[in-house]
């Protein structure tokens, strides 16, 4: 697990796949490893790269055989993101996901979540677009400091 903590997410390199909550289980015995991962979003194009990175890192540490298994259930949630991961996102300029107190389920429309600006901390922010540069993010702008920023959606 410690080795995998140094595998960065391919699209957000400041966060490791462990801190994102993608790695669900690791089992190593006599140089043979089985790593269970769960996809973030169904169509996340980074999953293939993540599998390759896991194999490469473990082989570099002397593992002879590495198998990566994908598990769908239970579905990944941003609740699994570590505190260290959230802090790293904030320092990188991406607002981390709000806690689960923000209701993300259901079909009924509701107000956009209040998200503090990762630059100046102001709560005077507004949603610009439901999707940002990747499926896991939305685009906000801070009305206090004027900076646009990505928000890693609670999911």
């Amino acid at each position: 697990m410690a080795w995998l903590e140094r595998v960065p997410d391919p699209e957000i390199p400041v966060v490791s796949i462990v801190d994102l909550g993608i790695v669900r289980a690791v089992h190593c015995e006599d140089g043979v490893c089985e790593v269970t991962i769960t996809p973030t979003y169904s169509g996340c194009p980074a999953m293939r790269a993540i599998e390759d990175d896991i194999v490469n890192v473990l082989k570099a540490h002397g593992m002879t055989q590495v198998r990566v298994v994908t598990r769908l259930a239970p579905a990944w949630t941003t609740d699994w993101m570590s505190e260290r991961g959230r802090e790293a996102l904030r320092n990188y300029g991406i607002a981390p996901p709000r806690e689960r107190a923000v209701d993300i389920s259901g079909i009924v429309r509701r107000a956009d979540p209040d998200v503090p600006c990762p630059q100046c901390g102001s709560m005077r922010t507004r949603l610009i677009s439901a999707f940002g540069s990747t499926a896991c993010k939305a685009l906000y702008r801070c009305n206090a400091c004027g900076e646009p920023f990505d928000y890693f959606k609670a999911h």
Binding site: S42, G43, L72, I128, F131
Partner: peptide, 20 residues
Amino acid sequence: LEEELALSNVSLDLLGQARM
């Protein structure tokens, strides 16, 4: 641009589901 990003991302989600 924002609408294009949104539809491209919805498309990607659906593609992932289609693969499964």
